[in-house]
Amino acid sequence: MSTDRPLLETADLDAGYGEVNILHGLSIAVPRGAIVSVIGPNGAGKSTLLKAIYGFLKPRRGTVVFRPDGAEHDITGMKPNKLTELGMNYVFQLDNVFPNMTVRENLEMGAYLRGGKPDKEILERIHGWFPRLDERRRQRAGTLSGGERQMLALGRALMSDPKLLLLDEPSAGLAPSVVDVIFEKLQEINGAGISIVMVEQNARRSLEMSDYGYVLDMGRNHFEGAGSKLLHDESVVELYLGGRGRLAAAQLIADEDYEAKPGDAPRRQGRFRHEQDKEKRHE
């Protein structure tokens, strides 16, 4: 009966660093096959939540349950390598590749649980999503560009054939065109049956492609709901999506031919550019 219950569930999680508690009674659920976004301001505890799920921080209270196939596992505070064995993987925001190993060796480490020998089918699928990784297989990962590194980080995580991926800000610090590629691939990866929990600063983008979203503030659940619902929720938009986002986007498009003159206030151009593209694509 566990198939209709969430793939991952945290209940009432308290966790933190040293004496300080950062998460206060946090509960999230990830339905099987879903993309779930966790958004919220800087320092809200989004990364801390992922670390607590993956056993890098021992929760002080609450439980984490993972139901990969039929079986139900209480994974609260379990060691990270055990979680990987159970069918999860995790991409850190920073330092998410082995810099002194080649691209190929990074992927081999992703397949460590298969004795470091990549499964041919999985490897081909990853190379299909990220052809760059095949082209650069002999290159040291530390010499890759930011976008390539992110692709390698995802590739490494996918090598273990996970059911669930935890992603910490997969688009952070990347050029807009690369962000597009990454988000597009994440949807394809999800289409291949891999559930995704994604922490994002790029809240609007990630909610747009998510089945469900959580808004965290000060380590607490603040709002939650279907991705599209949060996108149109007045208070979420106001607080976390940069205020009257829709209007601003419309404004940007209307001002397309506007030429900046010296003395003009700087405009946050490009921020909603993707929406513009999207609308064009939909025409």
């Binding site: 993956y54 890098f56 060691k79 990270p80 390598n81 990987t84 064995e85 993987n89 995790y90 850190f92 330092d95 998410n96 590749v97 082995f98 810099p99 002194n100 190993m101 060796e105 081999e108 480490m109 992703g110 460590y112 649980l113 470091g116 490494r156 995580a157 273990s160």
Partner: peptide
């Protein structure tokens, strides 16, 4: 290779399934 992975990043090594 696991030894080299660990010396690059202990946390990333454990996420990769390395004990």
């Amino acid at each position: 290779k696991a030894m080299r992975a660990l010396s690059d990043s202990r946390d990333l090594a454990s996420v990769s399934g390395i004990d």
